[in-house]
Design a protein around this nucleic acid. Structure first.
Lengths: 229, 229
DNA sequence: CTAAATTGGTTCTCTATTGGATCACATTAC
DNA sequence: GTAATGTGATCCAATAGAGAACCAATTTAG
């Protein structure tokens, strides 16, 4: 087996916390004892613990010992980890809940300069020639629309979706489903959303966004119709 | 059989990343090992890896190894940190988007044992005598309902909301707005949601949940009606 | 109250592993 | 034949782990 023991130690220690073997707020054994127990150098234990301390799982105090932190930060770290494994289908389902609503909010809440930013992204996506360039302005279009919605929580949820969609698995999927014909469809649908925003029409914006997301889902997950190639 | 060239190696390595054989953030075998495995020279592996590194699929670190570039966990952690500062109004707005939909999903997707778990939480909330106890089973009721919805992403978003609602500011707010009369109202509304789930009626579940959340919002944010001091 | 023991914090050297860079040579494609 | 590409080898640079020594804060024994 390869080296990089510290990462293994991190996993082992985290497991003991998560299984309740080391309850919240309890003191865990001294670094020197753990080093002996795992058969590694104290340095390695320390590196592992530093990582767990950074992510909030442990808290260390000179002279006193190392303690299992309260559940909060622990849970957040676990959520992040679980989110990286979410299926595209699950995410598309939630996008179809949130983004039409975001579009409706945007129609009423957006400032003129925010709408201009959306328009700019839309135009850049229209004139993009290669796929990465289009990808970027497409993402930017949706992101700027979420900013228009003026709901911080909604915006941050979209930030999460944006990061997850940039993972290799997603990129491969998007690349597979991309075609010039589809790009043009997306541009037309973007324009319809933008028009509704500019007319300040929440219901139309919601509908246009839903239509767009259904197209994206069909193309991405291959539901409903046979695709080209 | 044809020889393997750098471009073939690129395709093979990319496939391993995209299929999840090499998960995000994991360390891949050393160049020397891969060279042996594919039966090519280390330089060939290196050329392939350089390409994957340039396109962002891999990240290499001298002395450590080569890693699958993944969703930036730091960025996700930063998002959650920003989320800690969002306003209750913003969150209630999104809850009213997500939870009615979750209730509708739950009506169709839940297993009987999952529904039993919801019922148990509902009963425990009904018979709770003090506020912390009710708080706990109220949260549990909503959480178990999200599990019924069978959408991982939705469930994790709710986990985040749950953690945020346990922060001191929120707790003070909930405490201020709590009364025995309101507790009873919540219990009746919970029961209505549960009944709709048991009848497998998505539309009724959606409506019942929306009614409940509007009550909660009115009580929590003091909208629409004057509240006690 | 004081001194000793405990425990985390820091720094050092040594060794093994691993990616980075370069070279001469062989093979293949045109 | 020439150019491009892969092979095999060598050396360099960065990093992690082992092991040890010492410091600083806290707790405990007396």
């Amino acid at each position: 087996m390869s080296r990089l023991f510290a990462d293994d130690i991190v996993a082992l220690l985290r497991q003991r916390v998560e299984t309740g073997q080391w309850p919240a707020n309890s003191r865990i054994p001294p670094e020197r004892d753990l080093a002996k127990e795992f058969g590694v150098a104290r340095n390695t234990i320390r590196r592992a613990m530093s990582q767990l301390e950074a992510e909030g799982t442990l808290s260390r105090q000179i002279g006193r010992g190392t303690f299992v932190a309260a559940a909060n930060s622990n849970a957040l770290a676990a959520i992040i980890k679980r989110m990286e494994g979410i299926s595209p289908a699950d995410m598309m389902e939630i996008r179809q809940l949130l983004e039409p609503a975001a579009a409706a909010f945007a129609a009423t809440n957006a400032s003129v300069s925010e709408l201009n930013a959306v328009q700019e992204a839309c135009n850049n996506a229209n004139s993009a020639t290669d796929m990465p360039d289009f990808e970027h302005w497409d993402a930017e279009f949706h992101h700027r629309l979420f900013i228009c919605a003026r709901n911080e929580f909604l915006r941050e949820i979209h930030n999460i979706m944006r990061i997850l969609r940039n993972q290799p698995l997603w990129l491969a999927m998007k690349k597979r489903s991309f075609s010039e014909e589809r790009r043009q469809t997306y541009c037309i649908e973007h324009q319809a959303i933008l028009d509704a925003l500019l007319r300040r029409d929440p219901e139309q914006a919601r509908r246009a966004m839903l239509v767009h997301l259904q197209t994206v889902e069909r193309n991405l997950l291959g539901r409903g119709e046979p695709s080209q190639v």
